[in-house]
Design a protein around this nucleic acid. Structure first.
Lengths: 95, 95
DNA sequence: TTTATTTGGTTTATATTATAAACTACTCTA
DNA sequence: TAGAGTAGTTTATAATATAAACCAAATAAA
């Protein structure tokens, strides 16, 4: 009945990040920071964890002289997100 | 866009417990333990937290000579669960 | 032009949370 | 009356999240 929820995704900030990336495919660090209303420190740590899980790729380059970090969802990330949603629905569709 | 998820409910075990209680209204400790596949220790700690948040009531009595702990959902608990689900859907309905 | 501020992050330290292990208290059975 | 089982609680530890401090470079201001 209550299957385990993927602990990587069962975190408010990581879920928000992956949710965003599932729809936009790729985004800048600063965009993710604004959209999720998180601190840079927290976001930095969390995207590393999502990357370590293989759910996103992180590319670092420079844009207009400033460092730029771009995150892209991977196929594994999309799959994990969909699976998470599926399982989560068993929790919240009381019945 | 990403409103905060109630931290009391954003925990696998606590969410499962409240989800169960929303549908059955009240349940024994042992029933919750079986349904959620949790250890007694963890369940004991988590239902206390849910109670401290005012989402459930805990009644202790004896049944057939054994201690019996019964958990009941409160109106605040139902409201919190519904609000949690509402907010969560903003996270998972990628768009 | 040098110092202050801003950008775009990372690292580290601490607080919070979850979980497992150990424990309590009583009951039943042989 | 010793051993195993029931129904939990408490405590110690591991894992996680978060805030604060830091870094390196760029730009603005004095």
């Amino acid at each position: 009945m209550f299957k385990d929820l993927d602990p990587i995704l069962h975190s408010q900030l990581r879920l928000a990040v992956v949710s965003l990336l599932v729809s936009v495919k790729e985004a800048e660090f600063t965009y993710l920071r604004e959209q999720t209303n998180s601190t840079a420190g927290n976001l930095s740590v969390q995207i590393q964890k999502i990357k370590d899980a293989g759910y996103i790729e992180i590319e670092k380059k420079f844009k207009d002289n400033y460092p730029q970090t771009i995150c892209k969802i991977t196929p594994a990330g999309i799959k994990a997100f969909e699976e998470y949603v599926k399982i989560l629905k068993q929790y919240i569709s009381k019945k």
